[in-house]
Write a protein that binds this DNA or RNA. Structure first.
Lengths: 331, 331
DNA sequence: AGGGTGTCTTGACATTTGTCACCGGCGGGA
DNA sequence: TCCCGCCGGTGACAAATGTCAAGACACCCT
């Protein structure tokens, strides 16, 4: 087919990178389902092999075809089994340790996000209600989710705003994940922290706020990161956590933060237990471990926070890396 | 890593090609989830790249990782849309025509099986009840299903035994598919055809039989092939279909067989309509077309059978190949 | 009608991947 | 204890795949 053949007729006004016809679909079918080589597909479709490669890449980019693995596989790893048993979890999903490079914190978060999105997958579907917290690991999770369109699904912001950095804020994480899933996004239009109790009570009276709070109770699955309690976090939330607050709660025995609430080593939060942890039917996925394997100041704090979250029964599933998992079972 | 390194410790008594440890899992994770190259994975795991390739191939063979595509895509193919509209189907899934080789009947069946398994996928899940008929296309469907474990799911044999060949018998198809899905298998422990009405009535009184019949009514989705009425089929079911029976029903206007019952061009079965076709909420997937595009004696019969099944409303979805679909819309 | 722009396609190249024959250790049997 | 068979690992080669810059066609605007 060296002659410059006439283009196939297309639908006239198709979006930029859109390909109106069936070529992508058929290429995808022949390649992925029937296991033919790209050359064979090219011959069958009458185009060059390079085009077939393009079609396939397009199909993957658009999520028309997806490879997925049983998320339980990660739980079958020996370490995962020990962890799950030790903390009475429904599953502990352990990803391989990274390159061991100390500068890989960002990379580790990216990989935790990938793992989290896999673990989340079986919980998604029509009528599902997904509660999303915030943090950089949540952000990574959103970025790892394949784009899809799930009708009748909702993504609910489970914590108030003004937490986290710009990109890892609750609003942004929730919106990103909702967009990726093609689901409805229901944000929490109120700050997480207000200065007076009167303001708090007034806010709770707001119909929109009350509605959001009741939505949170209907979540079929909640995902959150585990934050450590440490001077470093003060930097990013000046209005929420300051030196005085952290010291105060540390003195009271707090070990970590889960969805904006302090938890201690016994699993008792500072006020009511978050997440409806009494509800055994709701899946609660904790993603943690970013940084916990590094030999830094915050390392022990991070471990303590995760251990507190697990002991307290805040999570039913944990996603973490091998190094962190190792330390968790050792203790 | 050219030095012959010591072998990793393994579980002693593992089955032949079984690999006890986590290496396969981690290789799979790093490669498929994180998108690293095999060389990188090899470096991380400390083995040769060839071994990684072997691990991955093992993972695919065991179905630990599976690629799947949106089944609706197949329905979006133009031909599929016409078909669906013409016969008021919820979807008509059209796979590309084969190589055009007349000897490819077996291959076509294999490909129909792949398509069928994709179409079936969204109907599977917890609490789902899958009704399975029989035939070589059903067998191919089972073989195309990836191995998985779906809790609380059942696979129900919807027709009596002694139909089809050894491998394509109702029992075998049902068992195969149940195994692949990790679901419970509920067989029909009775012959499909008995010689006297008295025997039939007596069987219906049996508690086990009655229970199975009620199970069939609870199926959330039923899958079946469409059989043509033709002298050739006599060969495989000597006890059921013989020359006389076929001629008898042909004379009465029968056009095909669906789940062991004769149907005619108007969609009226010989006795009651099968499959609870009045139930609009139940998905009924028909897989048909094997051989229908070939220029043989049975070709028209096969087409007529499929058309009868569609016109009669026995199916809500059809899976077929492009050549057959073409002929169906032309008529 | 002419020129510009953007998209799709293509051939060529570099990389990645699948496969096969060979190798080495381990375990079982004589 | 020695030998043999088997299983898994490895290196090297061939095939398949991803990527890039350049070309061609259609559409749009003037």
């Amino acid at each position: 087919m060296t002659t410059p053949q006439a283009r196939l007729p297309r639908t006239p006004n198709s979006p930029p990178t859109e390909f109106g016809g069936d070529a992508v679909t058929w290429a995808m079918w022949l390649y992925y389902a029937e296991g033919r080589t790209q050359s064979e597909v090219a011959k069958l479709l009458g185009v060059s092999r390079a085009s077939v490669a393009n079609y396939l890449s397009e199909a993957r980019r658009r999520g028309l075809v997806s490879i997925n693995m049983q998320p339980d596989l990660l739980a079958r790893v020996e370490l995962g089994r020990s962890l799950a048993q030790r903390f009475a979890l429904a599953g502990a999903h352990v990803i391989p340790a990274g390159a061991g490079d100390e500068s890989d914190l960002q990379d580790l978060r990216r990989r935790l996000g990938i793992a989290g999105s896999e673990v989340l997958r079986p919980h998604l579907g029509r009528e599902a209600v997904l509660g999303i917290a915030w943090g950089r690991t949540m952000l990574a999770l959103g970025q790892a989710l394949p784009e899809q369109t799930i009708p009748d699904m909702r993504v609910v912001q489970v914590s108030g705003s003004s937490l986290g950095g710009e990109e890892s804020s609750p609003e942004f994480c929730t919106a990103l994940i909702a967009t990726r899933l093609g689901a409805r996004c229901q944000n929490f239009h109120a700050p997480a922290i207000v200065s007076t109790r009167e303001m708090r009570d007034a806010l709770l009276q707001e119909p929109g706020i009350a509605r959001q709070l009741s939505r949170i109770k209907t979540c079929s699955v909640v995902v959150f990161g585990v934050g450590e309690l440490d001077e470093a976090v003060v930097f990013s939330e000046p209005d929420f956590l300051n030196q005085a607050t952290v010291s105060h709660y540390l003195a009271k025995g707090a070990a970590g933060i889960v969805i904006g609430r302090f938890i201690d080593g016994c699993g008792c939060g500072d006020r009511r237990p978050p997440l409806g942890s009494a509800d055994r039917h709701r899946a609660r996925v904790a993603a943690g471990g970013a940084g916990a394997h590094l030999h830094r100041r915050g390392c022990l704090r991070k471990l303590a926070a995760i251990r507190a979250a697990l002991s307290g029964g805040y999570a039913t599933r944990l996603v973490t890396d091998a190094a962190t998992a190792q330390r968790l079972v050792e203790a």
